[in-house]
Design a protein around this nucleic acid. Sequence first.
DNA 1: TAGCCTAGAGAACGACCGTTCTCAACCGCA
DNA 2: TGCGGTTGAGAACGGTCGTTCTCTAGGCTA
Lengths: 191, 191
Amino acid sequence: MEHAERVLAAAGELFYRRGVRAVGMDEVRAASGVSLKRLYQCYPSKEALVVAYLERRDERWMAALTGYVAARPDRVQAVFDWLERWFGEDGFRGCGFVNAYGELGADSAAVRDVVRRHKERLRGYLRSLAAEAGAADPELLAGQLLVLVEGATVTAMTGPPEAATAAARAAGLAAAALTGAGPGRAAPCPG
Amino acid sequence: MEHAERVLAAAGELFYRRGVRAVGMDEVRAASGVSLKRLYQCYPSKEALVVAYLERRDERWMAALTGYVAARPDRVQAVFDWLERWFGEDGFRGCGFVNAYGELGADSAAVRDVVRRHKERLRGYLRSLAAEAGAADPELLAGQLLVLVEGATVTAMTGPPEAATAAARAAGLAAAALTGAGPGRAAPCPG
DNA sequence: TAGCCTAGAGAACGACCGTTCTCAACCGCA
DNA sequence: TGCGGTTGAGAACGGTCGTTCTCTAGGCTA
């Protein structure tokens, strides 16, 4: 529906930039241009809107990542190249799922579940990249890559802008070492 | 002062467990047993109380980490051993600084600054461990260890309990590979 | 034109927020 | 016993929250 999409676009922008609790439904109404009545017809509660926001973000974020990575030869490295670009975008404010979980995870089971689904989806994707790279233990490497992705994102969020690039690169170098060295990078065991 | 400490203890527990915005000043009053008037004498605003909470958390968290690590032979590995213990504690809910930043960082410069100070302190400590371990580039290794610590913490928070242990171990193994293999761990380049 | 349904604008509602104020009870001291 | 100063309990204040309700205007069918 036309209206639901406009609501979701406005809510997504506001929730990500300022946090869920900091944004009221009336602000979503004003930003979307949809009346409050219709807004509640599309999403019967704020929690439902937050869940829809996260589900939409999951789809778009994963699509952007996988789309970028698919076209690159060294796919594990491409993940961290993509992160570096993301960190540099205007309005970058870390992982929307982690932020939502920190705000609401203790209160809302629905939010907790959608965050976990997203993280499991990301882990599964990294597992496929690990297997493709010929890892001896793709499950372990996927877990390590997930830790690197999360850690780089948090570090990029909390630090000053120049730290964001450094975090992505440090994580990329670590990933290269763990996967057995990407092309053009220093091998972990020279000689 | 006696009262300020009781307020801070109650606020710290509540803010960490449920999030800053989810806890009202009246709840802090009730949990601390300090009257609202005195509470505002000790901390003239909620923001001041939040900053004090984070500063106290910085001191205690860093002291717990460094105290544990100092007594161990392999200090880099000890960081991740300590993380694993922390993740298993009752009421573990990720990094209080990251959560506070996600909730308030966009609104409160004071919160943003205290979070950054804490993360810089942690980075500096990891740099000293990296240098002690004989890293070729301690600054880079410190950045990588910071990414691993942050990533393990986020992964432990968002995932189910059993994932927390796995995240700490995966990060520890990654750290061992990056530092050139800790004792008793598999070397990254067998043979 | 008349009647009916829908939808939008925004007022209203009860709850709760951070913060301040009131007021009675209590303190050490004469 | 009387008294100024301090305290604690909690009411009060203005504001905002999520949600619901009212009321009006406008577009359909006849």
